[in-house]
Amino acid sequence: MNTQTPVIQVDGLSRTYRDVAALKDVSFTLEPNIICGLLGRNGAGKTTLMRMLTGQDFPSAGSARVFGQDPVENSAVLQQMCFISESTRYPEGFQARHVLTGAPWFYANWDAAFADELVGKFRLPLKREVRKLSRGQQSALGVIVGLAGRAPVTIFDEPYLGLDAVARHTFYDTLLADYAEQPRTILLSTHLIDEVSNLLEHVLVLDEGRLLLDQSADSLRGSASAVAGRAGDVDSFAEGRQVLHRDTLGGLATVTISGRLTSADRVAAAAANLEIAPVSFQQLIVDLTTQSTPQPSLASVVYE
């Protein structure tokens, strides 16, 4: 029984563009006040899903509800949402200061002082036309709007494009610090999985339009192990277990095994001269989304 109050509820959501199915029967709920990672390969359907959540696109089937309501043309709901997309195209002649002047008109919780502080942190030039800013500076502008907007539901679609390593870490640190002070629901799509893995409390993984994984980050951490050694020994050890990925090099093999290993497993592995290493978030997602056989439905890769 789920007694949590979902802020986002998606039921059987599908989106088809002519003969291309961008989303296929996606269902999940998100509790309020968490940072959720939306992960997946290019073309997995992440942006389509986020556009549907913000009423920018329309479902072919199923429903997306935010605060229990359909977000499409729903001012009361949309006012509580901020969607920062890497594909935002700024109107000709718009300078960063124009964007930051306009943002508080639409985000009731806008914190101007915080925005000013972030402009300094990201060294964003305010009086240059946005289209003439570097890709990284444009991303910084989006990040500033997303953070200072303090919308109860904030969605970032690959907000880091072009940001250098320092600016990305400024974003992560600021996001985490501000989230601690002002908890809200943050949905973050990214390819830099390992960089954000410590931020995430929940993970959604999309692959070819299907939801592959819907799981808390805590239960995902350490939920798979890489076992390496002689191919025969590795295969013997892996027999009967769910293997997410297998690499071979000469007579050596490495397999990614889903599920937590018991002490007995570790003893058996040591006895067989097998090395066991934790699998990073990124490697786990890569393994999940590069399996040769498509996942029939929501993956159940992790069990205690």
Binding site: T3, T5, R65, V77, Q79, Q80, P152
Partner: peptide, 14 residues
């Protein structure tokens, strides 16, 4: 049972 909030919490702009 799933309880769904029907009213966003933050301030609204008319």
């Amino acid at each position: 049972m799933t309880a769904i909030s029907i009213a966003p919490a933050a301030t609204r702009i008319p």
